[in-house]
Computed example of a mutant assay.
Amino acid sequence: MKSGQLPGVKQLRYSPAPRAPFDVEMLSFAQLRLMDRSRQRTRPQRPDFHVMALVQSGVGRHTADFVDHPLRERTVVWIRPGVVHRWTDVDDLEGPLLLFTQGLPPAPGPVAQAAGDIFGPACWQLDKDAWDLSIWAADHLRHEHAAAVSNPRLASAPLLAHLLSALVLRVLPVEPAEPPTGNPHEHTVFHRYRAAVEQRFTRHHRVRDYASTLGYEPRTLTATGLGAKQFLDQRILLEAKRLLAHTDLPAARCAEHLGFQDAANFTTFFQRQAGLSPGRWRTRHDGH
């Protein structure tokens, strides 16, 4: 099994409409239902792109990495690449739905930081003032996208990227999750570390390995107050849960896939982090 693939989960690749060859695509819940009459949306799926939705009306439910979220008016949904999710119930929902690629948000900056946060929130509510501004931002992006599709002469990829960034900044929670430090250098260290973990967590389980790769002393990562070891353990645990819930791999194969020397080490790690053995956790969450 290739890294990132889960046999029980539909892998979704970014594929915009032929006449809309941009890194962002605007849809709606109504269009999602129309395109998905077989209701594949209710089964686990794992996109390699970002999915963002703004619920303007209706009530429903959404599941992201084993957490069930109620959906109602003024809910924002953000599914980042690699997250296993399903639209549990969106039959009654209306509102804009946008897809965009991993590389679209300009970097560096708060939008790119939020886009790269593997543990960032999947759903949250906005107050009315923030919501109204968010809908205006989404409408602006929708109009520009429609104009770019209908008239290539007007198409501007940088403009679409900036309008998307404006929308993301507007919908972010009032107090977005930030590393608990005000030091810009420590922010840089953390984001470099986070990116390295995402690339190597199935092979390297020690913070000092990442420190060496990034050119830091181990104490540089541990002294930032960012919980370097905890972050690494939680990333490994998340992928372990995905493997257990969405594949039939025995614990020994899960251990191998995640870079553990043997099944016993994997079981000890999982038990310590999740509070359950891999087998018991799988029984509770199989197919979620």
Rank of each mutant, 00 (worst) to 15 (best):
W131R: 08
A195R: 15
V171T: 14
A147D: 15
P179N: 05
E175G: 04
R192P: 02
D209A: 12
P121S: 02
A161E: 08
P152G: 04
H145D: 10
L238S: 07
A223V: 06
A148M: 06
L160H: 07
S165L: 04
V168T: 12
D129R: 13
T224K: 01
V171L: 11
G227P: 05
A146I: 08
T202D: 11
L160K: 07
T220M: 07
S134M: 05
A146E: 14
E217N: 12
L133K: 14
A137G: 06
G225N: 09
T202C: 13
E178T: 09
N151S: 08
G227V: 03
G215T: 00
T202Q: 11
Q199T: 14
S150T: 08
Y193H: 09
A177Q: 14
A211V: 04
L163F: 03
S156A: 12
H162G: 01
A177E: 14
V168I: 15
P179V: 13
R208A: 10
V168E: 07
I118H: 05
G227H: 04
S165D: 12
H191L: 10
R203G: 05
A147P: 04
R235K: 13
Q230E: 14
S134I: 01
P121Q: 01
L238G: 03
F231P: 02
A122C: 10
L221R: 08
A130M: 05
V207D: 06
T222N: 14
R208N: 10
A166R: 13
V189F: 06
H205L: 04
G215C: 00
A146K: 11
Q125K: 05
D233A: 03
A177Y: 05
L126T: 04
D127P: 09
P180R: 12
L169C: 05
R200V: 02
P176G: 10
K128N: 11
L214V: 00
A228I: 01
N183E: 13
Y216L: 03
L238F: 07
A166Q: 12
R235C: 14
S150G: 13
Q230T: 15
L214A: 01
L126I: 06
E175H: 14
G215Y: 00
G215Q: 00
V189W: 05
V174F: 05
L238P: 01
W124L: 09
L169G: 03
R206P: 01
P179R: 11
H140L: 12
P173I: 08
R192S: 10
F119M: 12
L169K: 02
L160G: 02
V149I: 15
G120T: 03
F190L: 15
D117V: 01
W136Y: 07
L164F: 06
R235D: 01
R219I: 13
A155T: 10
T202F: 07
H162A: 09
T181M: 11
T181E: 06
G120Y: 03
C123E: 04
T188P: 01
V197P: 03
L163I: 01
G120Q: 02
V207K: 10
H162C: 04
P121E: 00
A147G: 08
A195T: 11
R235Q: 13
Q230M: 11
R219Y: 14
Q125N: 04
G182Q: 12
H162K: 08
Y216P: 00
